[in-house]
């Protein structure tokens, strides 16, 4: 059941990314390009995503997940060096290619050589992350 729910969630996520235009790198870069032809679509995607999730978080109060276990605890309100440096590095890559992890997988079947290369490089980056993280300690 956990795997079925995960499959459905992943599938809906992929459908949402495709429908919203987030697999189109120009729409993402258009959102980031405040000095060019600014494209506000991504704000609508974020807003559309945050509303159901805000309701979901409200529903977690005094309950447990349908398939058992516990809901994830809210992280301590700390913004440490790793969070900021990591987010800046991620933002640089996001701006360069117009892709983040979710859309890169959603577009893998039709993104051609570029899409496959991006995912391969991202996987290598994920494997290198512990070494970079050690530099920040």
């Amino acid at each position: 059941m956990r795997n079925l729910a995960a499959l459905i969630a992943g599938g809906l996520f992929g459908a949402g990314l495709l429908i919203s235009g987030m697999t189109n790198t120009l729409k993402v870069q258009g959102w980031l390009d405040v000095f060019g032809q600014w494209d506000p679509t991504l704000a609508f995607v974020m807003g559309g995503g945050i509303i159901p999730m805000a309701i979901a978080w409200a529903l977690t109060k005094n309950r447990t997940p349908v398939l058992g276990g516990e809901f994830p605890a809210k992280s301590k309100p700390e913004a440490d060096k790793k969070l900021i440096v990591g987010s800046v590095l991620f933002g640089i890559g996001w701006g360069l290619a117009g892709l983040c992890p979710g859309p890169s997988i959603a577009a893998l079947s039709f993104g051609g050589v570029g899409g496959i290369t991006f995912v391969a490089a991202m996987v290598v980056g994920m494997l290198l992350a512990p070494k970079v993280r050690a530099l920040l300690d």
Binding site: L89, F90, G93, L96, L99, F118, G125
Partner: peptide
């Protein structure tokens, strides 16, 4: 870009 996204997000 892929390297930055992979390292940064982790």
């Amino acid at each position: 870009a892929g390297l930055f996204v992979g390292v940064g997000t982790r």
